[in-house]
Nucleic acid binder design. Structure first.
Lengths: 240, 240
DNA sequence: CAGCCTTCCGGACTGCGCTCAGAAATGACT
DNA sequence: AGTCATTTCTGAGCGCAGTCCGGAAGGCTG
């Protein structure tokens, strides 16, 4: 009763070019499959363009369907709902930023900087596309199930793991903390960052135009404090 | 362009019986005002009943209007949107639980227990009315502006302050932490609690039927770790 | 009570996300 | 090519949140 079994519409996301497909001929895609992928691509491009230009709320699913040159009903065979279209687009955007984040985290001077570097793509998105990012977070947290949302959740979990890794580097050699403690701390760090971002986005009710620099500084401070707590006082400024 | 000035529909919430109204006669309410308050009350009761019995999604604004015996359009002169109706109801429910929470926090054995006691009403609501609570949190975080949501935000802020107070009691005498540090810690504690709650509510996708006991235990552990961090290692089990 | 202004009410209406029953396309098999 | 089963597409239609404007009802003054 619950659930979609393994019958998800599958693909749907701009594939990470699988190095080599299993045995079967390299190009045995029937007309059907090709058409489907093409439609998928057109939908993605239409959604990306419209959402970016006009913002989530101002875009209707009709518009997207028309821009993708398909019927209004067809759209919903490729996405469970409007929100999933945005999640799809944002996932891709964040994926592109993620690599940079991971690299930056490697040579972040302090642990705090490393952690902040990890979430930088999200922060950048939050600054440059406030509305879409807000909706993205809302829907990832509270939206209906769907393949793209599931992927977003996976990405979040990965981010958390990455934070844990950074923290583990800090802890190593200092005093032995259990893995449990480190993971708890990672969750704490991430929770604070995430909610801070959300609050910030909502702040346009109070003050508009956030200073990116100030924001990053803020985040770094918060993380620093948390890490200091984890290490049991003392400065955390020498990360790795 | 932004905004509602001070022209909010005012009242709207089951008043905390103001001890004595300013000078002007005790009962100078014109028929109009009386009718308005009555309508307000009927809307509140209708919304409370329907949301509780059927759950947010299954209730239509039409239904509420009919149950309150008013026109469909009239409803929206008393609430900005459907979500505000739920927020209104939940605010009241949480307000009733809040007092108990504050008392429990006073004589909580450990600081962790005190903090958990503060959020107990929310947790209880989350357990007994999962759907409504989820919507409540979603709308408080991401919903459109409105008087009831504003009040919910205030309540959240108060809760955070209460947490800070508890923490301050812990810190007192141990080592001097700046207020800034304490407030940061309070925000951290609260963020973790809040997100944990949210995640838990969403977990019905994975596992249903949460054990209240286990949940509270979980929360207590988390808070304990955070406090230990703040205190700079050592047990935090002796709160006040 | 009579007139007038303001405030409030209500239900037809709009717009949008999403569905569904039927049409069309595709490919496998004669 | 012709038939048929299956997958995919489609757009008219539905339900619902929220709007709008014509009209009713309260409160004031004389």
């Amino acid at each position: 009763m619950t659930t979609r079994s393994a019958t998800q519409p599958a693909g749907a996301l701009p594939q990470e070019s699988p190095p080599d497909a299993p045995a079967a001929a390299a190009e045995p895609l029937g007309r059907r499959e090709r058409k489907k992928q093409d439609t998928q691509r057109r939908i993605f491009e239409a959604a990306e363009d419209l959402f970016t230009r006009k913002g989530y709320a101002a875009v209707t699913t009709q518009e997207i369907a028309e821009a993708a040159d398909i019927g209004a009903g067809t759209l919903f065979r490729y996405a469970q709902n409007k929100a999933e279209l945005l999640i799809m687009v944002m996932n891709e955007r964040l994926r592109l930023g993620a690599r940079h984040g991971l690299v930056a985290a490697q040579d972040g001077a302090s642990a705090a900087e490393a952690v902040v570097a990890l979430v930088e793509p999200l922060v950048q998105a939050a600054i440059s596309q406030r509305e879409n990012t807000t909706v993205y977070q809302r829907e990832v947290l509270f939206g209906a199930e769907g393949p793209h949302r599931a992927q977003a959740l996976t990405r979040i979990r990965d981010l958390e793991d990455a934070v844990a890794t950074v923290l583990r580097r800090c802890v190593d050699g200092r005093r032995d903390r259990t893995d449990d403690e480190v993971e708890r701390a990672a969750t704490a760090v991430f929770s604070v960052l995430y909610l801070k971002l959300v609050r910030l986005e909502l702040r346009d009710e109070y003050a508009n135009g956030v200073q990116p620099q100030a924001l990053f500084q803020e985040l770094r401070l918060d993380v620093d404090h948390l890490i200091r707590g984890l290490l049991g006082t003392g400065t955390a400024s020498t990360g790795r």
